[in-house]
Amino acid sequence: MFGFGKKKEKAEQKTATIELSPEQKAELNQVIALKQQELAQAEESLQAVLYEELGLAYEELGETDQAVSALEKSLQLKKSAGRGYKTLLKLYNQKRAAAAKANDGQTLQYYLEKIDQMMQISKDVTRGIK
């Protein structure tokens, strides 16, 4: 009724990573270069959006560390709960899972704290706290 028992099917879909073609990669790199250029000249009020777009492009390209860094900057400049937020939470959770598998307690705590901060941002945005 509500999709019980479809877990496996979905999980399989998730694990199938999408391989980017060289053209797609080149296009994303172009987007990244453009956003970086725009960021150099942009007013502070626009920077949060540009960092978010930059982070999303990095994520698509598979450059997760750079994606995390750009998306964190975006949220530092302006709290929001859009695509950038969701992507950052997903990346933190991936890094948390990797740290748990590697039995790396310190890194695990670091990302658990980051996830806590994301919960606070979500609460703040919903309640309109700037």
Binding site: A81, M118, M119, Q120, S122, K123, V125
Partner: peptide, 9 residues
């Protein structure tokens, strides 16, 4: 995670 995890969606 706590319920705000779903708010952005």
């Amino acid at each position: 995670l706590d319920c705000p995890v779903l708010f952005p969606y």
